[in-house]
């Protein structure tokens, strides 16, 4: 080996992630300064926290000994409401999402329709479900109806966006082949597009069903129906064993939903 080669071997280092050294150090410094500012800016009342540790212990204990029985009626009613809201909202959301998704797919829709549908999706995706729920409760009154509307609103943003992206990714040649046979626009959708996006549509709907259930547990906090109200009350009363029971049921339902939806997805593939 020549000395130059040895020298080169000695100097070799893996290239850094950010090539520009100034930028690299500036970013690092910025991150450190930000972290220092952010952490020091959090007011912590240690007395309150240490007090809370005891409550945290009680909550964990509640998980080991959840109390299903003492408020069984409320819990049962809450979950029934959450589940029916989930079902109705997912189905309605799906029915609305399909035309919106077709409109939001650049390869199918004319430009004005495309912009309109994309705008609709952006609107739905920007606002948190809970904020939408507050507004709908103010408009339609307390209860599951406002909750269903909230979930439908969220479902449309979610499903249409992902479905539209999937439609934009389809194999164009299959569509072209149907077009070449002289099929009409609807036949094109039925033969060229639908078979290609169907498995994904089913997968996304099941996924959204799962999300809607989880959301339905939250929007009850602002009065839009579902198990959330019961949960909120339990925390307010410091009934951690009841809260733990509700959370356990949520976890179990989500797990069941996840396992069955992955099974269904494998089946439709």
């Amino acid at each position: 080996m020549t000395t130059a080669a040895i020298d080169r071997a000695r100097r070799w280092r893996p290239p850094p992630l950010i090539a520009n050294p100034v930028l690299r150090w500036a970013l690092l410094l910025g991150a450190v300064v930000y972290l220092a500012l952010a952490v020091s800016g959090i007011p912590v009342n240690w007395e309150r926290v240490s007090e809370g540790l005891e409550r945290g212990g009680r909550f964990l204990a509640g998980f080991l000994y959840p109390d299903f029985s003492s408020r069984f009626g409320e819990i049962f009613e809450g979950f029934v409401e959450s589940l029916v809201m989930t079902v109705v909202a997912t189905v309605l959301g799906l029915l609305v999402s399909i035309p919106v998704a077709l409109g939001a797919a650049r390869n199918l829709a004319p430009l004005p329709v495309y912009y309109f549908c994309r705008g609709l999706i952006a609107l739905s995706r920007t606002f948190q479900e809970i904020i939408v729920a507050i507004l709908f409760v103010a408009m339609f009154g307390f209860g599951p109806f406002a909750g269903v509307l909230t979930l439908v609103f969220g479902t449309v943003g979610f499903l249409s966006k992902l479905l539209a992206e999937d439609i934009e990714d389809i194999d164009r040649s299959q569509v072209e082949a149907i077009r070449a046979t002289g099929g009409s626009w609807f036949q094109l959708l039925n033969y060229g597009v639908q078979p290609q996006v169907m498995p994904r549509l089913i997968g996304l709907s099941l996924y959204r069903l799962d999300i809607n259930f989880r959301e339905s547990a939250v929007i009850g906090i602002v009065g839009a129906g579902g198990i959330g109200a019961t949960l909120n009350t339990a925390f307010d009363r410091y009934e951690y064993d009841v809260a733990a029971a509700i959370l356990l049921v949520i976890i179990v339902i989500v797990m069941i939903a996840e396992y069955s939806s992955s099974a269904i997805r494998r089946w439709v593939q």
């Binding site: 800016g41 959090i42 309150r48 809370g52 939250v218 906090i221 909120n232 925390f235 809260a243 959370l247």
Partner: peptide, 28 residues
């Protein structure tokens, strides 16, 4: 993982506010 994912952050917040009191820390 599934326990963490099943419960919305708002519910986690509800729980933490009840345990350690309201404030930014509970949110974090």
């Amino acid at each position: 993982i599934v326990a963490s994912r099943s419960i919305n952050s708002l519910i986690w917040a509800l729980l933490l506010v009840s345990i350690i009191g309201p404030g930014v820390l509970a949110g974090v």
